[in-house]
């Protein structure tokens, strides 16, 4: 029944559009111009920097995109159906996204994560979105969660659907099909450089493939922690980590290293000078963009701000 049939005496329909759920609002995030820091540090250089405000996704992070795609592709392939439970390892954001999606779609979500994931994130997953948390040893970081998750899955493979975000092509395809297109449209085809941090590497792999597919001249850069021991949440130092199966270093042009303290300082600057309260990985992306900006004469640089996690930033290290 059409909306205006419900109220034929009204000239405008009572309801113009029915939304299915909050999941329909994943993607199409704003592109925010970072103007003040650029002007202060680069003067009149012909450089613009824009950031994708990924924390505006339902679930609060960029991970809503790959999580939804992996779940939908899993359902389409018959891997996630009636009675099956989802299990995967996560250092936070993907877990929150899975938990939200599971709650809406009606399947149970099990998340394997290191004990020292901050309590706000654990609370989002378990208390608000009803996921079951399985904690791995903090000292083994996210690689310990990966190993424990694989062990639990292999002991009972018929019970679970394990998307395996580190090795699932649906992860990067989500970005090729959504993030890249949005960036192209929002910059009206003016984007010249794209940068993203590497964790699973899905954002960088997919968005780069999407952008280069439209314009091969777009340059892409991986933001990587400068040291193996670092505090840039969600990012991996590839040379000393379990390398994700979806990671392909030939996809992008160059790597830019960022120290944890540089990222922290930039998080503070983004708050004070741009009014943006973002997570450490967003700080790292902005540091990378500024390092790149100093080496080029002009360009339109687009970066990803994966999350905000206000509490974690404000009280960092206390959880």
């Amino acid at each position: 029944m059409k909306a205006n049939q419900l109220a034929p005496h009204l000239r405008v329909p009572l309801i113009t559009k029915f939304e299915e759920s909050v999941l329909d609002h994943i993607g199409n995030t704003p592109l925010v111009r970072i103007a003040n820091i650029v002007k202060k540090d680069l003067g009149n250089k012909e450089i613009q920097i824009y950031a994708k405000a990924e924390w505006t996704n339902p679930g609060g992070s960029v991970k809503a995109r790959p999580a939804l795609r992996m779940v939908r592709d899993g359902i389409a392939a018959g891997k996630l159906g009636r009675g099956k439970e989802l299990i995967d390892s996560t250092s936070g954001n993907t877990g929150i996204a899975y938990a939200l999606i599971g709650k809406i779609m009606g399947f149970k979500v099990n998340l394997v994560l290191p004990t020292n994931v901050c309590k706000q994130r654990k609370g989002m997953m378990a208390s608000q979105y009803s996921a079951n948390l399985i904690l791995s040893e903090a000292i083994e970081s996210s690689d310990g969660a990966i190993r424990l998750c694989k062990k639990i899955y292999s002991e009972n493979p018929d019970k679970y659907f394990m998307p395996d975000q580190y090795n699932n092509p649906s992860n990067w395809m989500a970005h090729r099909d959504t993030t890249a297109k949005e960036i192209w449209e929002q910059t009206q085809g003016r984007v010249t450089h794209f940068l993203a941090g590497i964790g699973t590497s899905g954002t960088l792999m997919g968005t780069t493939r999407g952008l280069k597919g439209i314009n091969p001249g777009v340059k892409a850069y991986a933001i990587e922690p400068a040291e193996p021991l670092h505090g840039i949440e969600g990012l991996k130092h590839m040379d000393t980590s379990i390398v994700p199966g979806i990671y392909d270093p030939t996809v992008y042009d160059e790597k830019i290293s960022v120290k944890t303290e540089e990222a922290y300082r930039m998080v503070s600057r983004l708050e004070e000078e741009e009014g943006l309260l973002v997570g450490t990985s967003a700080g790292a992306a902005m540091v990378g963009a500024m390092k790149l900006a100093h080496t080029i004469e002009k360009g339109v640089i687009v970066i990803i701000f994966p999350d905000s996690c206000e509490e974690c930033v404000v009280a960092h290290g206390e959880f």
Binding site: S91, G92, P114, N116, V117, C118, A138, I139, E140, S141, S142, D143, G144, A145, I146, G199, P225, P228, L229, H230, G231, I232, E233, G234, L235, K236, H237, T240, S241, I242, H316, G317, E318
Partner: peptide, 30 residues
């Protein structure tokens, strides 16, 4: 116990204690 909630680096240790150095959540390692 996190030493930030004790006496930071002046926190006392005794025989049998186990100290752990744990980085904040980040990408993992082998």
């Amino acid at each position: 116990e996190d030493i930030r909630f004790l006496e930071s680096e002046d926190s006392k240790v005794k025989d049998g204690d186990v100290i752990s150095i744990i980085p904040a959540i980040a990408g993992g390692t082998h």
